[in-house]
Amino acid sequence: MISHRAKHPRSVFLPLASTAAAALLLTACGADSDPLEDDETTQADGDTIVIGSQAYYSNEIIAEIYAQVLEDEGFEVQRDFQIGQREVYMPELESGEIDLVPDYTGNLVQYYSDEADSGSPEEVYEQVGDALPEGLQALDFAEATDQDSYTVTSETAEEHDLTTIGDLTNLGDSVSMAANSEFETRPYGPEGAQELYGVTIELTGVEDSGGPLTVGALTDGDVQVADIYTSSPAVETENLVVLEDPEYLVLPQNVVPVADEDLDEEAVEALNEVQAQLGAQDLVELNTRSVEDEAPAADVAAEWLEQQD
């Protein structure tokens, strides 16, 4: 009797299939679209203000703040949060199905005009006004930003006396930096840093968009600098220092409400008032409260609003 053994236990199709599956899986993860995003928005009556938000927790908190502020003013509010990307909610805003969305100045300009000239927050805000289509208005922008940054640990900042990106030359001929690999190709990436500040960056690709792995690479000392979003809770919890960017290498992304042009004047005033209170540190704290304490957006927003009065 002979032990049974298949002579060719694996076909050539198995590796093909698994590679294809892996590729498909990755493409699926990479596509930022939400398959549920095109559910019909319930049409609210004329007096109700419909507020949308991105499918991004921090953006939802801001939207919730707007909602509560407007409710306090006696407006009827409908929350259509977690809509998805700009490609989805801007058309809804343009068509009037949504009345108000919190957005970010630089990204708004880029959405409507492909290229945005970096500059001061005021200059970028001006471009927003020019870029927005008929029927939409940008309310006041807040000091709070949610943008890429050159961030270091407080120890590094103290030791080498760093306050601006240009000070990174104190670290030596070149500095190691963790960021998503596409950072290499961005205008605010290594080339821009070289041009504006004379800083040579050696990039290590860490692909979690400034998430825990990127933060870990920075705090473990694997890299000296990391691209972490300015509103990231890690800025507070890990005591990080976001380097100042006086030459505006990174396109400013100040929080700005985009609204229907016919939005009630009182509503606009109330929103502008809250925008004036939303500082850089506030947004970090709001996000920290949400991420660290897993508090729901409504509670985070309500607590913050209470503190403002």
Partner: peptide, 14 residues
């Protein structure tokens, strides 16, 4: 490439 070690994954993520 996800954690900075390179390889061909770099082009997939990029």
């Amino acid at each position: 490439a996800y954690v900075g070690a390179g390889g061909l994954g770099r082009f997939i993520f990029l």
